[in-house]
Amino acid sequence: MRIHPRYTQGGAVAVLGGATILTLMILVFIIFFILEKGLPVINLNFLTSNPEDMGRAGGIFPTLIGTILLPLLAIIIATPLGIFTSVYLSEYTKETKVTKVIRFGTDCLAGIPSIIFGLFGYIFFVITLGFGWSIISGGLTLAVMILPTIIRTSEEAIKSVPKSYREVSFSLGATSWQTVKKVILPNALPGIVTGIMLSVGRSIGETAAVIFTAGSSLRIPSSVFDSTRTMAVHFYILAREGISAENAYGTAATLIIAVLIVNLSAYWLMNRFIAKRS
């Protein structure tokens, strides 16, 4: 039997469009579900007081500190490495075997699951280097984890700087580094910042890599060698050990809001960047 193309066309639209709408609905459902149950729990007191009785009561203040410090340390370490790598790949070398190896390594690193980062961070930073379960171990592990994202987004941003700017700069007697500093990086900056923010978003939500490297202490850290607990880890412990559904929802809502703010500002920045370009 032969079905008229018009009907297959209609069927295709229905199926493909349905898949898209389903995907969007799942996203909306997750966000609304968490916010609906969690928002009533969140208030100033919840955010600024210490947890009591393992998190059964009280707030999440120390986990906010952990959630800020770990991604911060990670981007401080990974950003210069990532930007320099992308500058080298796009401005200082042509496509060779070496750059192919570097690119392949970056792609592979991006695909490594976070549990492997956790194992590595534990054996290398916590045990071998003797940093213990600490902010520094967690931050370094996250830095390794987000490095490929920063390299890729920076490279994209640098590639989007018009070639003619480079030509003009070189023709005016600039060296490669002067061109990078004065023309390429300033124009690629919004794209680079977008990549950094996406990395921050990923770090905030990360659990497996953090729990084995930064530990889960609820005390407020006094140095980078102290253990800390991030919001994601706190939420995991609350939810998994059934400590307090209410506080779990509150923590999850705070986590989702933080991640959404970071990601949405990243997209906003990206859009402005693209709008300016064209």
């Binding site: 995907t23 996203l27 968490i34 939500g205 939420f235 986590l255 989702i256 991640v259």
Partner: peptide, 15 residues
């Protein structure tokens, strides 16, 4: 849709 990638895996687990 890429926001789906930003939602922490613990939240998926919880859902």
């Amino acid at each position: 849709i890429e926001l789906l990638a930003a939602i922490p895996s613990v939240v998926y687990g919880f859902i």
